[in-house]
């Protein structure tokens, strides 16, 4: 009970700190919205994607990029944000201080995950508002679509958070954290169907990307935001939501185990 109560206090504290940090708000919070705007504007005069040869129907490029940007936001808020944030806190002595007070590790994690959940809900809301009203992207219709959206989103963000916490053990100093974390998430975004159309990647690259969770988050979001006619373009010819849940689940468990065994308030000595 105390652990959860303190976790709740931590969420408020972490959120306050997060939004006072101008650079992280800009790079992780607004990044997917900026990227969507760039793609939507860049391709605004291109013909619709998925249209038959006569040029009718299909969807705009803005609409095509929405699921990828939602998935990128999930990954950035969790993996990039927490990976850099926690490595920084380890480097500047914040964690050492926390390690000396009666704060359960789990409460600290709750604070981080809660902070990411709250900020990423806000982030995706803004992203969808921009998509809908600035770029005229139609929103999914029907409760079943929104139910899929909710579970893929929550599951994906929590998995990202856990992986971010696990990844924070990797950088040797707080200063090197961005250099370690950003290339990983950037590469994943390029091979997982965020910036590039996943269906057009070579088969071996698709298979490689399928090892990592971002590909599945993006696929889950495509199932929500893209019309049925796009399902055939998926590698298996189907949205495969069961597999989306399975792969994210495996990564979640692996991440939890990594956190359990690698997280320390201070670097191990000697």
């Amino acid at each position: 009970m105390r652990t959860l109560r303190l976790g709740w206090f931590r969420i408020g504290y972490e959120l306050r700190l997060y939004f006072r940090q101008g650079d992280s708000v800009f790079f992780t919070f607004l990044f997917p919205i900026l990227m969507l705007s760039v793609f939507a504007v860049a391709f605004s005069t291109s013909p619709n994607i998925g249209a038959p040869p006569d040029g009718s129907g299909g969807i705009t490029w803005a609409a095509f990029y929405v699921p990828g940007m939602v998935a990128a936001g999930m990954l950035l808020s969790g993996v990039q944000n927490l990976g850099v944030d926690i490595a920084g806190e380890k480097g500047d002595g914040t964690l050492k201080r926390l390690g000396g007070i009666p704060l359960p590790v789990f409460s600290y994690f709750c604070g981080k995950i809660g902070m990411v959940l709250a900020s990423s809900v806000l982030q995706v809301t803004l992203l969808l508002l921009v998509a809908r009203f600035a770029f005229n992207v139609p929103m999914p219709q029907g409760a079943d679509k929104w139910f899929t959206f909710a579970w893929v989103f929550l599951f994906g963000v929590i998995t990202s958070c856990v992986l971010g916490i696990a990844l924070s053990a990797l950088p040797r100093t707080g200063k090197s954290a961005t250099a370690v974390v950003i290339p990983i998430v950037l590469l994943l975004q390029f091979i997982s169907g965020v910036y590039l159309n996943f269906a057009q990647l070579p088969g071996w690259l698709q298979n490689f990307a399928s090892i990592f969770p971002l590909k599945w988050m993006a696929q889950g979001m495509r199932a929500v935001f893209l019309p049925r006619s796009f399902e055939a373009m998926e590698p298996g010819g189907a949205w495969n939501l069961g597999l989306v849940a399975l792969v994210m689940g495996v990564w979640l468990v692996a991440g939890l185990l990594l956190c359990r065994f690698t997280f320390r308030w201070i670097r191990r000595d000697g």
């Binding site: 303190l6 206090f9 006072r20 806190e89 500047d92 002595g93 000396g100 007070i101 009666p102």
Partner: peptide, 27 residues
């Protein structure tokens, strides 16, 4: 225990009052 470490370099985006109020909750 009370621990005052040799060095601290936290970013410090909280006020003195906020930080102490928050830390008081753990005890």
């Amino acid at each position: 225990l009370g621990i005052v470490l040799q060095s601290s370099g936290e970013s410090g985006n909280v006020t003195v009052l906020e930080q102490l109020t928050h830390f008081a909750r753990y005890y």
